[in-house]
């Protein structure tokens, strides 16, 4: 039997093994070395970031987590980064879910991000978990005009009238933007059709690879920012991580007595080149800062990003190898096919 024939008749479990190795080996390598591949954000990821960044601090953001553990590998990193951006920016976050398991997604992502990194945010004033509601698009349609009819209480059983940040929320029209992380139906398409289009609300969507191509036609009129699959998540994650570092440095500089505009430009420079922070602290520009502030700035510039905010970027490693394997498999499959057809054994 020739080599090509052997490949043609090979047990498909060899392909499974190759795929398993293509994903497992990079995970172990990245897990042991901590290295991730660089990410450059595409305009769609940047505009997703800008929609939330352009809104003034304290804006009301509805975050609809319409996904489940089955798609958490793709969507979990987006969800954590959305919460990180909103928390750092000081937006008020309202979480809801149209998937039964979405309620658990709200709990796990908020515990990870708010509980772990923004413990000062107060439940009921800065963020609220309104939980799951059945009914798919009918829920969106109802809250488009009457929020409380569908959500009389939050997920913890407190009446919405007793939750301070629910004051002034009568319908979806009272939110400044909608963020939807979606794994299918009901999800981003329903948010476009029943909320973003009729109410003309800025909608940012993070969705699975399966849905992403279907969402592109809605950009930019009906969907303002779109994160597709793990690549979109990695791009957005890197943008948010860079900005959080910059924003943290800026806040430290302002607290140390630096003027707002100067602090902003200095923070941008230091966040880009953290190694320069030490040299910068010796310059005249930093003279007005106390030694404590300087030390804090140097530490912030060099601080590693917490692992949970690098999840998507880590997954781009297995993604790279597995994509190359897929291309290799298709090419190999075709080679085998055309070779056997030339031999007259075409199927």
């Amino acid at each position: 039997m020739s080599f090509l024939q052997r490949i043609e008749n090979a047990d498909r479990r060899w392909v499974f093994l190759l795929m398993g190795l293509a994903v497992a080996v990079p995970i172990i390598y990245i897990g042991l070395t901590g290295k991730t591949l660089p990410e450059k954000a595409t305009p769609l990821a940047e505009s997703a970031f800008e929609v939330l960044d352009d809104l003034p601090s304290g804006s009301r953001i509805l975050l609809a987590w319409d996904f489940d553990p089955a798609s958490e590998g793709e969507l979990g990193p987006m969800a954590t980064s959305f919460i990180r951006q909103c928390s750092q920016k000081g937006h008020r976050m309202y979480f809801i879910a149209l998937w039964p398991v979405g309620a658990q997604m709200i709990r796990s992502t908020t515990t990870k991000v708010i509980g772990g990194y923004y413990p000062d945010l107060e439940y009921g004033r800065d963020w609220v978990d309104l939980g799951f509601k059945a009914g798919n698009e009918a829920v969106i349609k109802t809250i488009a005009t009457d929020f409380r009819q569908m959500f009389p209480a939050d997920a913890r059983g407190t009446s919405v009238s007793a939750i301070p940040m629910m004051e002034g929320i009568a319908s979806l029209a009272d939110f400044d933007a909608i963020v939807n992380v979606s794994a299918g139906y009901p999800g981003s398409k329903e948010w476009v059709l029943y909320a973003a289009t009729p109410l003309k609300k800025p909608l940012v969507v993070g969705c699975t690879g399966v849905q992403a191509p279907l969402m592109y036609p809605y950009v930019p009129n009906q969907v303002r920012g779109l994160l597709g699959a793990i690549k979109g998540a990695a791009e957005y994650e890197s943008v948010v991580n860079g900005w959080v570092r910059e924003d943290s440095i800026r806040k430290t500089l302002v607290a140390g007595g630096m003027a707002e505009s100067e602090a902003a430009s200095t923070a941008t420079t230091l966040a880009r080149d953290p190694d320069d922070a030490g040299a910068w602290s010796e310059t005249a520009a930093a003279a007005s800062l106390t030694p404590e502030s300087k030390a804090a700035v140097i530490a912030l510039a060099a601080a590693p990003t917490p692992g949970i905010f690098l999840e998507a970027q880590r997954r781009m490693g297995p993604q790279l190898v597995a994509h190359l394997l897929m291309i290799g498999l298709i090419v190999m499959g075709n080679l085998v096919f055309f070779a056997s057809r030339r031999r007259g054994g075409g199927r």
Binding site: R12, V15, F16, L18, M19, A322, L325, M326, L329, I330, M332, G333, N334
Partner: peptide
């Protein structure tokens, strides 16, 4: 992956 090898 298996489909990629056999079907495309």
């Amino acid at each position: 992956a298996s489909a990629a090898f056999r079907a495309f």
